[in-house]
Write a protein that binds this DNA or RNA. Structure first.
Lengths: 335, 335
DNA sequence: CTGAAAGCGCTTACAG
DNA sequence: CTGAAAGCGCTTACAG
């Protein structure tokens, strides 16, 4: 049916070993023989079967990437970084998106033993036990924006540092009463952002009262009610720091619904620097994360692990925290 | 090293054939035997090698998706549709993003013979010859938002119809002098949108002068200069129809840079209905495409082709044009 | 109900 | 320089 290496060999009058050698540029092959084989390959439009090849070679040169396929430019940038690192080293990239019904484990089937040489997990909703299982099985894996396990390499952005930058900026603008809209409290990044804010406040002799923390869940919409809660405080905050941009946008809307102007009456800032941030009015002051770099470094390290394993070496798990950057626009009230 | 079916068989005191039967729920296997095998599988944490399995079965139950990984929510929706159709039929999805350096053919390597059972190509920058080569090779393939080849199934949105809706809407609002910001002129969708606009204008006895068409390339930023060109016309257009939302946003910015108000001084509308469209100010009037549905139907048909082929049947290539929808917001000047 | 064996399509020592 | 053969890890008629 489909043409195999046997067809090529027969037509070229050589053994399949020779065809294989020509295709892999291995060993010496007589120029005439090579010529003839290549000729037949072209005639037949022969292509090696990747499955058989992978089985024999015990490698596929494919890196797997599991990423939540939510509509978030932040993840796009990570993918771009992973892609660049991967292709520049002669590997291919296979992206699987995490299903929304996470009870389903189908997404892991794609990454069954044998299919990919390594795996980059991005903010995946995967049980720690599963991650360790894969890791123990010998899968070269790397975590991005995901709770770190000391024995598994991880690449995260400096959420704490970013929140510190933002807090210092707000205080520098003269804001003293600051409210915080928290994201999902099960994730490390939310805790880190809150800690950064708190520490800087403390360093300026300020505190973050309990009732100045409202709770959202990172998703669009969840910042609205949270903001209302903060606006209901006896003394309204001068500035509100939302744990991400989506909620910050909700907060701005909530403020407007009360007839308040942003930033004149109340400053609102976010975290992430989603592309929308620059388009809304007023443009949102936020913290940019090194998404591309995280993806790039994570993938590069996964490939390093694979190379090392091939030589029988094993790499010490790298843990990298990439620095974030304050992006000052207008919603903070800066001149 | 890694545990294989032989390890399981040995430990369970059966042949590999029996292990395979248990794992595949094939034939009758004595309950006790089954029990023992399953027990060992669990103990050893055995997982079948997907490569070997695929080679023996001559199928992987994986559908490939090639899509430009640009930061565009439109493509996200397509992915979601493909994903739903795929997983609901027990298939896995493998996404490869087209590299920006399209001279590189690496992305096709991932889809080498054997790896995937079928392929969905979305707005791919792939030579027609290559597409036909893959198709001739027997790859079950389907095209989305891509120039149609009569012998290859295609799923596109009704760009012409959408543009007609928009043109009629603008004329209904009283606009007579309409400018157009074109996208890449190598793609069919751009031509279709322009044709839709032109036809409706003609039906109203209006024409679209050559200098009322400015050229962008669909990417963010490219709409700015194009808009300036239109604003420099002796008589300014009353409305500008951009071939996509990204460029429409640029156009709004360009108008503002000249001190013009949108829509009071000039109306600006787009195409695509990206999520940003509803957030910008003024909210953008645009044409929504059935991205999710296109993805869903395309993937479903690809899987149908695969099933048919397995039964020795071959399907007549389906060509589907999905209708678009006018989304009226404020940038067009509608009340 | 179960085992032995062929087959899926490659790669790569091992001889010669 | 090249062929014959073993091996990669599965599945599935074919016997029994």
């Amino acid at each position: 049916m489909t043409t195999t290496i046997f067809d090529v060999a027969r037509r070229a009058g050589v053994s399949i070993g020779t065809v294989s050698r020509v295709l892999n540029n291995r060993d010496r092959v007589h120029p005439d023989t090579r010529e003839r084989v290549l000729q037949v390959v072209a005639e037949l439009g022969y292509q090696r079967n990747a499955l058989a090849r992978g089985l024999a070679l015990q490698e596929t040169r494919i890196l797997g990437l599991l990423i939540p396929m939510v509509n978030d430019p932040f993840f796009f940038e990570i993918v771009r970084g992973v892609e660049d690192a991967t292709t520049s080293r002669g590997y291919s990239l296979l992206i699987a998106s995490q299903p929304r019904a996470s009870a389903d484990r189908a997404y892991l089937d794609v990454f069954q033993r044998g299919y990919i040489d390594g795996l980059v997990l991005v903010a995946a909703n995967v049980q720690a036990a599963e991650i360790h299982e894969l890791n123990d099985r010998g899968m070269a894996m790397v975590l991005v924006e995901q709770d770190a396990h000391v024995d598994i390499p991880s690449f995260v952005s400096d959420n704490y540092g970013g929140a510190r930058l933002m807090a210092a900026h707000l205080i520098g603008l003269g804001h003293r009463r600051i409210g915080y809209i928290a994201g999902t409290d099960t994730t490390a990044d939310n805790a880190e952002r809150l800690r950064g804010l708190r520490d800087v406040l403390a360093e300026h002799g300020l505190i973050l009262p309990h009732d100045h923390i409202a709770h959202g869940n990172y998703l669009r919409g969840s910042g609205h009610a949270a903001m209302q809660q903060l606006l209901d405080l006896p003394e309204r905050p001068q500035a509100v720091f939302a744990a991400n941009d989506q909620m910050a946008l909700d907060a701005i809307q909530a403020a407007r619904d009360r007839g308040l102007r942003v930033p004149e009456d109340i400053a609102v800032v976010g975290f992430d620097d989603i592309s929308l941030a620059n388009y809304v009015s007023p443009p949102l002051t936020t913290v940019a994360q090194p998404a591309y770099d995280m993806g790039y470094h994570a993938a590069a390290f996964a490939l390093d692990i694979i190379s090392a394993a091939r030589e029988g070496r094993t790499l010490k798990p790298q843990h990298m925290k990439l620095s974030t950057r304050l992006v000052v626009r207008r919603s903070c009230g800066a001149p």
